[in-house]
Design a protein around this nucleic acid. Structure first.
Length: 269
DNA sequence: ATCGGGACCTGCTTGC
DNA sequence: TGCAAGCAGGTCCCGA
């Protein structure tokens, strides 16, 4: 599922329903996600929500006494529903809210996670993350500096959470197309000025996708069940064999680290 | 230190 | 029509 724009769309969607409310109780039907749901989460009772934030692809729900971390993995989604709504398949967790609504976590593949941290922002999984792409600290200078000497393909390089967070398989391909960079090019053999352009492209692609409400392919939907519309703006993702929308050259397929890649051999060098 | 590959899991599509 | 293989938006962990 979800890359940064989808997680951010979800964060914006759930915030109005959590802000000023309490989590009355947590109902767990399937505790075996990527990691087991910890006892602290199961034990939550009438806990006020202080804020809903995002770091990388984690949703962070600040509570009195700790922080709830929610990761949507590959196929996860959150919906806000009226209390008592009958659960369907893969509806693993319900957060029952003081408003009478519930926040429901659905995740067919169970690559996602619901975790707990006593201290906000101090969970081990958050410790070694790179910069947020849409905040200070991420730019071409950072990319060029980190890429120095590396032989890794640039696509794999920008999908590495230590390089920059939130860039998954869809937006990595879109960003590289926008920047005119071949996805297989070695990260250490790209000029500073091209990294400036790549950083801008990543920011532009992610920002546009957030505005569109994310990309809906299979599993992802917004909190209200509506789809996101960025799929209409994709230039290369999933289009191997079709013609480039810029130069009409036939788009090619490749693989980087077991993930499929589509690119334009003419526009991307 | 860096890199690639396997692992986790379900469901859908493709090809024989 | 049935079945197996291959693929899917993530990312941690391991061994080379």
């Amino acid at each position: 599922m979800p890359e940064l724009p989808e997680v951010e769309t979800t964060r914006r969607g759930i915030t109005p329903y959590l802000q000023g409310e309490s989590i009355r109780q947590v109902l767990v039907r399937q505790p075996k996600l990527r990691w087991p749901i910890p006892a602290e989460v199961m034990a939550l009772r009438d806990a006020p929500v202080l804020a809903v934030r995002r770091r990388a692809k984690f949703l962070l729900v600040d509570m009195v006494g700790g922080q709830l971390l929610i990761h949507l993995g590959m196929s996860g989604s959150l919906r806000v529903l009226p209390n008592e709504t009958a659960p369907g398949k893969h509806d693993h967790v319900d957060l029952l809210l003081s408003s009478g609504k519930l926040l429901r976590y659905n995740d067919p593949r169970r690559f996602g996670a619901v975790l707990w941290s006593e201290q906000p922002d101090s969970h081990p999984l958050l410790a070694h993350l790179g910069p947020e792409p849409l905040e200070q600290g991420f730019d071409g200078e950072w990319l060029a500096q980190r890429a120095a000497g590396r032989k890794q393909a640039v696509k794999t390089f920008i999908m590495d959470n230590k390089t920059v967070v939130g860039v998954g398989n869809i937006y990595a391909q879109e960003s590289l197309f926008m920047a005119g960079i071949h996805p297989s090019r070695q990260a250490g053999r790209i000029s500073r000025s091209r990294y400036d352009r790549l950083a801008q492209s990543i920011q532009q692609v992610l920002s546009q996708a957030i505005v569109a409400g994310g990309t809906t392919l299979k599993d992802f939907s917004r909190v209200d069940g509506q789809p996101g519309y960025f799929a209409q703006e994709l230039m290369v993702y999933g289009r191997a064999g079709e013609n480039c929308l810029v130069c009409a050259t036939k788009l090619r397929a490749a693989r980087h680290g077991q993930r499929s890649t589509c690119y334009c051999p003419e526009c991307q060098r």
